[in-house]
Structures are given as structure tokens and as C-alpha cells.
């Protein structure tokens, strides 16, 4: 059997694949955080809760309405994104003139409320969401076994990330967003309805988190705490990548997933902390992050 540094190739590739899958979720979530931070300057602590709500909405939709996976993938981000727009419009906007720390605290509070409420009804043990029939099974690639659902997650996450990058970097709406990030007062003086843009942006960032949540439902136990545990890592990813760039958020997310996967192969004990180690190193050497603009 082929070995890589003393590890069987199949195990090595399998862990790499798992790392990439985790990285895909890091990428989707840190992308949403970066988009929101860019325009609102708020660190959205509710992001993990929105991811969790996405997974829960898919699960409850299936159990109560028979909503299938594909419809959930389409409808749940719209639903949770709509909730996000309400949160922005009626809560975050009221405190937008205050220090951005208040926005952070508000979203943190919302996350705790969402998590606590769902724990009250569903407990913390988590439920499983069935893998959609069309995506069950896997391929034997010879050097590794590739579950179809994992391949799909990776593909879907990449398409959504690249789509987001395209919208932001290559379209007129994206130009509004970038310009609004730099100087929103001037954008208003050009006749752009910036408050509306802010609402849509927050809704979009939250919808990305919910989309990730639906994607995650068949992979991980759907539990009220699934978001908060993931969010800590995602914040570390954001710090490593820097808030400055969309592509940076995506690449750092995937890259950190891989780093985590490789650590699992060679030194499993450190797998849960390696990202934070990288974060510390990056902060020491390049405080603005790998892709961030130096102040």
C-alpha cells in the first residue's frame, strides 16, 4: 500500500477530504462574516446561530412539512435571510450610530437567545438529518473512498463562494457594496439608498450562513449548539485571513480546513487547536491577516 510519511494513502486522502469539507464550511461562514463586517462594521456574533437555524429549519421542515432537501437548500436561506433583514432593520439599525461594540453585543445576545430557546425545546443531544437519496453512496477512486454527499458539499460551497465573489467584485451591485464600505455618506449623496443596501447585505450574509447550515445538516448532528462551537473556529479563520478580502476569506477557510485535516493525520491531539496556533502566529507576524490590508 502506498504510504505518505508513514500514513496509508487512503487514510491521508480521507483526512484531507474531511479537512476540505470543514474548510468549505469555514469558507462559507467567514465569507458571510466578511461581507457583513465590510458594510456594517459589525462582528456578527449571531452568525453561528444563523447557521444552526438553517440546519434546524431544514430538519423541522422535513419532519413537519415533508420539505425535501433540495427545497430546503433553496427556501431556508431565504427564510433565515429574511429574519436577518428584520434583525438589521429593527434592531441593528437602531444602534448603528453607537460604537460598533454594541452591535457585537446585540448579535451575541441574539445568538444566546436563539440557542437557549432551541435547547429548551430540543435538548442538546442533536438529531440526524437523512442524506438525500440522490447523494447517497460514494465512489471508490482507487486511492480513497469518496462519499458523494461530501463531494457535493464541496462543490456547492465552492460555487456559492465563487458566485459571491463574482457578485461583489464584478457587478454593479457589488461596486455599490465596495464603495459603500469605503464611504457610505458619499454613496447617499449619489442617490444610493444605503440603509436598504445595509439591510440586504446583512440578509445576504445571514443567508449564506443558513445555506451552510442546510448543507451541514446531513453531515453533523443538528443541535442547538452546533453553531457556537463552529463559530469560534470561524472567527479564528477570519482573523487569519483578515477582513479585507472576499477571496481571502474563502481561501483561508479552505486552507485552514486542510491544515486541520493534516494535523489530524500526523498529530491528532493538536487538531482542535492548530488553527488557533496559526492565528497566534499570524497575529504576531501580520496583524492585519494574510489577505487584509495593512492599516
Amino acid at each position: 500500500m502506498t504510504m505518505i510519511f508513514g500514513v496509508p494513502l487512503a487514510v491521508f486522502m480521507g483526512q484531507l477530504m474531511l479537512g476540505l469539507i470543514n474548510g468549505a464550511f469555514y469558507a462559507l461562514l467567514s465569507l458571510g462574516l466578511a461581507v457583513i463586517f465590510g458594510l456594517l462594521k459589525i462582528v456578527n456574533f449571531a452568525h453561528g446561530a444563523m447557521y444552526m437555524l438553517g440546519a434546524f429549519a431544514a430538519l423541522l421542515g422535513l419532519q413537519t412539512l415533508g420539505l425535501n432537501y433540495w427545497l430546503a437548500l433553496l427556501l431556508v436561506p431565504l427564510l433565515v435571510g429574511g429574519l436577518g433583514m428584520l434583525i438589521e432593520r429593527y434592531m441593528l439599525r437602531r444602534i448603528a450610530h453607537l460604537d460598533h461594540l454594541y452591535g457585537l453585543l446585540l448579535t451575541f445576545g441574539l445568538a444566546l437567545i436563539a440557542e437557549g430557546t432551541l435547547i429548551n425545546f430540543f435538548g442538546v443531544s442533536g438529531s440526524s438529518y437523512p442524506t438525500p437519496t440522490a447523494l447517497q453512496g460514494g465512489y471508490n477512486l482507487g486511492f480513497m473512498f469518496l462519499p458523494i454527499y461530501r463531494a457535493w458539499v464541496l462543490l456547492a460551497a465552492l460555487v456559492v463562494c465563487l458566485g459571491t465573489w463574482f457578485i461583489i467584485e464584478r457587478t454593479r451591485l457589488g461596486a455599490y457594496l465596495r464603495a459603500g464600505t469605503e464611504n457610505s455618506a458619499l454613496m447617499q449623496a449619489f442617490g444610493v439608498n444605503v440603509p436598504q443596501l445595509v439591510t440586504l447585505t446583512y440578509g445576504f450574509g445571514v443567508a449564506l450562513a443558513a445555506f451552510a447550515g442546510v448543507l451541514a445538516a446531513p453531515l453533523y448532528p443538528v443541535s442547538p449548539t452546533m453553531g457556537s462551537s463552529l463559530l469560534i473556529v470561524v472567527f479564528a479563520v477570519v482573523v487569519i485571513g483578515g477582513m479585507g478580502s472576499i477571496l481571502g476569506a474563502v481561501l483561508t477557510g479552505l486552507g485552514m480546513g486542510l491544515v486541520e485535516g493534516l494535523t489530524k493525520v500526523y498529530y491528532p491531539e493538536a487538531a482542535n487547536t492548530v488553527i488557533f496556533l496559526v492565528m497566534v502566529l499570524v497575529l504576531l507576524v501580520r496583524p492585519a491577516g494574510l489577505f487584509g490590508k495593512e492599516a
Binding site: R172, A175, Y176, R178, A179, T181, E182, N183, L186, Q188, A189, F190, G191, V192, N193, V194
Partner: peptide, 29 residues
């Protein structure tokens, strides 16, 4: 954002050119 729609163009003292946009994007913004 309603006021410029009355047909006003404003050119600020600091010029307000956007660094994240290229020249043509700035022009079309």
C-alpha cells in the same frame, strides 16, 4: 439619498474616489 435624485451632482472636497474600484467603475458608480 432622495436629494441627489432631484438632479444634483455633488463633488466633495476630498474628491471621494473609491480605492476598491477602478477608474471606470468609479465613473459608472
Amino acid at each position: 439619498h432622495r436629494i441627489p435624485r432631484l438632479g444634483i451632482g455633488y463633488c466633495p472636497e476630498e474628491r471621494g474616489i473609491f480605492a476598491s474600484l477602478d477608474v471606470e467603475e468609479n465613473l459608472l458608480l
